[in-house]
């Protein structure tokens, strides 16, 4: 039996046409993208729009910077015991002109990474409790 899966942040990502994407919004007037999604008012100081379209964000981007978490973060992070260090990637999306953070896929190390390298988004387990997997987005280098 497959384990049940729940998203860490419902509505923040989805699989569309077989590929995982972050879900954002885009201002209908000025074209500014939002992630997390913004549906109330555009934050561009020259735009008063309150109309947005839901859009999947680019799956691929370039690495802006990266680090790792050697120490266990406090709650609401759900940690392994003992803590397993993981990488954190900041990825620049070209079309959206924004940088999005996320963990790197399991097994990835800082030594594998370099600013400017191409990466892509995947969905993976953030943590597992009581037979239930909590799913999040992670970044993986493009082979």
């Amino acid at each position: 039996m497959s384990k049940s899966q729940v998203p860490v942040l419902p509505g923040w990502f989805a699989i569309e046409n077989g590929e995982p994407h972050l879900l954002g919004t885009r201002c209908r007037a000025c074209g500014t993208y939002y992630f997390p999604r913004q549906t109330l008012f555009c934050r561009n100081p020259d735009c008063e729009s309150e109309a947005f379209d839901e859009v999947p964000l680019s799956r691929r981007g370039t690495l802006w910077s990266y680090t790792n978490a050697m120490y266990q973060p406090p709650e609401p992070f759900v940690a392994e015991d003992p803590h397993v260090p993981y990488t954190i990637l900041a990825v620049e999306l070209e079309r959206e002109k924004m940088i999005v953070l996320g963990q790197g896929v399991a097994g990835l190390e800082c030594a594998d990474l370099r600013v400017g390298m191409p990466v892509q988004l995947v969905l993976d387990t953030l943590f597992e409790r009581d037979g239930q997997e909590t799913i999040t987005w992670k970044w993986a280098p493009l082979a």
Partner: peptide
């Protein structure tokens, strides 16, 4: 978790 989008500005 992300920067603003600089698509318009």
């Amino acid at each position: 978790i992300a920067t603003d989008s600089a698509a318009a500005v």
